[in-house]
Nucleic acid binder design. Structure first.
Length: 503
RNA sequence: GGCGCGGUAGCCAAGUGGCUAAGGCAACGGAUUGCAAAUCCGUCAUUCGCGGGUUCGAAUCCCGCCCGCGCCUCCA
């Protein structure tokens, strides 16, 4: 199968081939761990997961690496280049408050002044969210999810190489800057040129910092700052690394190549983050590429608007799963499907109604699985030439046409399955990509019934009893009670059953 | 100002030159039901942001315009 992906580097859909046949090497920009991850973060992470699973579907081994940014970068909008408040300090303040209000469990962060404890707290939360949503790489922590703070040496090595190669210099302020003019291809990824880049168009650079640079677009590699919360000794003074360097280093170190196959991230990372990564990596290695394919996911909207804390439509994964976003708990498989089901290069509109739609699909696939397992037990062998798998794969191979792929599955799922063992094998193959029926490897969190859940079995029995006595008022009242508690109630030949709604 | 992505039914969304414009959700009609739910059967875009052009033939190619979104040193 000819796999084709859109490559931001060339603005074209191109056939994908790994550089080395042994495996596909891909790197994804991961989360910062100063707060809980939101659904927009996960749209991007799950997009990377879909790329990975699609490649695996076609038989490629994939080595997927993701970073955890935990070095404590700066928050301030107005003063970039390492000014403003340290994000770790902001997180520390928030955790202190959350401890008081009981939002942070007892003993979770013993010392809110210890940035490593804060980072670990939010890293654990991220991994839990990621595993619940079926992000495969999260099950490979810590092998393939790397902490920036554990790779400072590699960053310093690369900064040294860049200085030696003439791509970096120490400014009059003692900060190590990358010289964008030393790298002819700077701007190739984003389509910018140094002439066209309007210095300070984002309104986040200060004249004072700019004065220390040779070119306004030069960016920081290392900043000596003994007052920074997280700091390390270096040849350029005790301080901390710039926020682009970690990815260049960790990709090279963990994937073991100067040139990798695929690099993913959110569209906002195209410039400056990925542009700078390319400049750093190629400046250090001398190779003519860093990643062959650059793939970016478009932003997520919420109910047609930009997601922002100010609008009140800013949702973390936990907010959605635990029901704070929609008023009802959402099954992780439903959120996963909702976040992967529209094309990655279009804006995704996250809506309550979309979640309902996704819940319907998840439910149908899970019911199909139950039906097939009851009928067949074990899956049979099935080749990739099965018509449904062929159509499913063809859609995915076409720049991840996920809606088309799902469109191939649903009519098949609704149809008759005279050979359940074969159908089960087909479903398994499909689910190796979708990962919604059943969800991922294990979803242990959130499965425990809450104490205030109704006693479903006895309420259903009460409905049957009332119906047997033709006490319709009573049976309808109990049914209404169950529905209000988030259950679908249905009448079957074996009596009334209630199932928890998935969203 | 520069660079890039997109606009198909009430909603999500395939289709990128040629059979009647996939699929899902919702809605509606019917079967079923004490009533529902679930299930099953059926209906649901003469038209693809707008206007031109190319062509035997355009949602698809070309030109112009309108609208939405992102980036241009916090950011998925």
């Amino acid at each position: 199968m000819d796999i084709r992906f859109y490559n931001t580097l060339t603005n074209r859909v191109e056939p994908f081939e790994p550089i080395d046949s042994d495996c596909v090497r891909m790197y994804s920009c991961g989360p910062t761990v100063y707060d809980f991850a939101h659904i927009g973060n996960f749209r991007s992470f799950l997009f990377a997961d879909l790329v990975r699973r699609t490649l695996e579907y076609f038989g490629y081994p994939v080595h997927h690496v993701m970073n955890i940014t935990d070095v404590g970068h700066m928050t301030d909008d107005a003063l970039a280049d390492g000014a403003g408040e340290d994000k770790m300090a902001a997180a520390s303040r928030r955790i202190r408050e959350d401890k008081k209000s009981g939002k942070v469990p007892e003993g979770a962060v013993e010392n809110p002044d210890d940035p490593y404890q804060i980072a670990q707290y939010y890293t654990d939360a991220f991994l839990e969210d990621a595993r619940r949503l079926g992000l495969k790489v999260a099950f490979e922590y810590e092998d393939n999810i790397l902490h920036a703070t554990q790779n400072i040496d590699a960053m310093q090595d690369m900064i040294g190489q860049l200085i030696d190669n003439g791509h970096a210099y120490v400014g009059p302020d003692g900060v190590v800057y990358y010289s964008v003019e030393s790298f002819a291809d700077y701007g190739q990824l984003s389509g910018n040129t140094l002439d066209q880049l309007q210095a300070g168009a984002g309104g986040r650079v200060s004249d004072q910092d700019q004065a220390n640079k040779r070119h306004p677009a030069d960016f920081m590699l290392w900043k000596a700052d003994p007052s920074h919360i997280m700091k390390w000794d270096s040849p350029w003074g005790t301080g901390y690394p710039g926020w682009h360097i970690e990815c260049s280093c960790m990709a090279r170190k963990r994937l073991g190549r100067d040139v990798i196959d695929i690099h993913t991230g959110g569209e906002d990372l195209i410039f400056p983050h990925h542009e700078c990564e390319i400049a750093q990596s190629r400046g250090a290695t001398g190779a003519d590429a860093f990643a062959r394919f650059w793939m970016h996911a478009r932003f997520l909207m919420v109910e047609g608007e930009k997601m922002s804390k100010r609008r009140g439509n800013f949702w973390t994964v936990r907010d959605v799963l635990e029901g704070r976003a929609t008023g009802r708990p959402v099954h992780p498989a439903v959120l996963r499907l909702e976040l992967i089901k529209s094309h990655y290069r279009s804006n995704m509109n996250f809506t309550k109604k979309g979640l309902q739609d996704s819940a319907g699909i998840v439910k149908r696939l899970q019911e199909l699985r139950t039906r097939l397992e009851d009928a067949a037990g074990q899956p049979a062998d099935v080749g990739p030439d099965h018509p449904v798998l062929e159509a499913f794969g063809k859609a995915l191979a076409d720049d991840l046409n996920i809606a088309g792929a799902i469109g191939c599955v649903m009519p098949w799922a609704s149809g008759d399955h005279p050979q359940p063992a074969e159908s089960l094998a087909v479903l398994d193959r499909i689910n190796s990509v979708l990962a919604v029926a059943p969800l991922a490897e294990n979803d242990t969190a959130g499965q425990n019934a809450a104490a205030d859940e109704p006693d479903v079995v006895s309420l259903c029995a009460a409905i049957d009893q009332a119906r047997a006595q033709k006490d319709w008022t009573r049976s309808d009242a109990i049914r209404a009670e169950l529905e209000a508690a988030g259950y679908d109630v249905k009448t079957t030949p074996d009596g009334t059953v209630a199932e928890k709604k998935l969203a």
